[in-house]
Amino acid sequence: MKIHHLDCGCMCPFGGALFDGFSAGLRAHLCCHCLLLETERDGLVLVDTGFGEQDVRDPSRLSRMFRLLNNIQFDPALTAVAQLRKLGLAPADVRHILLTHLDFDHAGGLADFPNATIHLMQDEHGAVQHLKGFLPRRRFVPAQWRGIDRWQLYREEGDEWFGFQSIRSVVDDVLLIPLRGHTAGHAGIAIRSESGWLLHAGDAYFFRHEIGQTTRQCTPGLRLYQRLMDTDHDRRRLNQHRLRTLSLEQPQLEIFCSHDARELARYSATDA
């Protein structure tokens, strides 16, 4: 299996280092860390899609609140479909998309891959069928998946993976790891590579120092954003604590989240 680490969206909220912990100017830099897997049996597989071509062409289909709050940069070169073409790969050859969850910055490219089956936790899919309330109506964008019927939904059942429940998908060596809290059916995606396991933790945490050390550290901006966006605060914090413990007990595991640009930089120079 060959693993490509892609940045499929740029968000630059005002606040600089108060958000990302490193920017010197007024604007922070948050990425949309997605994965492209080249597998022998299952063909091309995506983990999350970031923003899609339709989002770039028509930003108004996303909530004005989040466009302004996150200062989203709608760059067509950052779409997953554009990056596949740059690699010499055909979007039509993507057979599977595994989603951590359905927030607007994770599911925007679904329509760009017409032959892909979409793998998702059943509770996540169910939660967006009848959106109610101010925030859910803005964070989830049904237009991103309207007309798509190629869903493979999973219940919370399966074997253990390093102390976490795991759900085996139809894709070899790829597991869904339920990490509820940020959304109703949020999940991490665990991938077994030749060098060991990787865990794409999605939005289970946002800042690199929330794991890998005994005491959680997070910037004020991302701490507030996580609190704003969680659907089950206690469960999110519990799962984040479990990930921090896992990162300390199993330092050989590669764990990364969706939006920390410094984490993505560890992988961007060369493919894993």
Rank of each mutant, 00 (worst) to 15 (best):
G43M: 14
S60K: 15
S169D: 06
L110P: 04
D7C: 09
F104D: 00
F207L: 11
L264Q: 06
A187N: 04
G202N: 07
Q122L: 12
D103Q: 02
D42E: 10
L89F: 01
A92H: 14
H209G: 12
E210W: 07
M1D: 02
A24K: 15
D172Q: 08
P91I: 01
D149G: 11
D234H: 09
R237M: 14
H259W: 04
E40Q: 06
S193A: 13
Q226I: 11
L44T: 02
V56I: 14
L228R: 05
T245M: 03
V56G: 02
C218V: 11
W197K: 06
L6P: 01
Q240N: 02
P76L: 10
L135N: 04
Q83S: 13
S63D: 01
F51C: 03
D271K: 05
G108L: 05
L35N: 06
Y205E: 07
F164P: 05
L110F: 09
A90N: 11
Y225L: 09
H182W: 15
I97H: 07
M11I: 05
R227C: 00
T39I: 11
I167S: 10
H209R: 09
L35C: 10
A272K: 06
F113E: 08
C34W: 03
R216H: 12
A204T: 08
T49W: 03
G15C: 04
L222H: 07
G147V: 10
E194S: 03
N70V: 11
M121N: 12
V174S: 05
T270Y: 08
G25R: 07
V81K: 10
E40T: 02
S63V: 10
P178Y: 06
G212A: 02
C31K: 15
H29F: 13
K132C: 15
C10T: 10
L238N: 00
L120K: 09
E157K: 15
S23A: 05
H5R: 00
V171T: 04
L175P: 00
M121T: 11
G221D: 04
S195H: 08
L175D: 00
D232W: 10
W161A: 00
V170L: 12
H130Y: 14
L62E: 07
A90S: 07
R155K: 14
E160M: 11
E157P: 03
E194L: 08
F104R: 04
R266A: 12
D42P: 01
L44H: 01
G25C: 03
R168Y: 03
G25Q: 09
F140I: 09
F206C: 04
L246S: 00
R146W: 14
V170F: 15
K132N: 13
Q240W: 01
L243A: 04
C257G: 15
A107H: 09
Q213E: 01
R95V: 02
R192V: 05
L253G: 02
L18W: 14
G88K: 08
I118A: 13
H130Q: 14
R41M: 14
S247L: 07
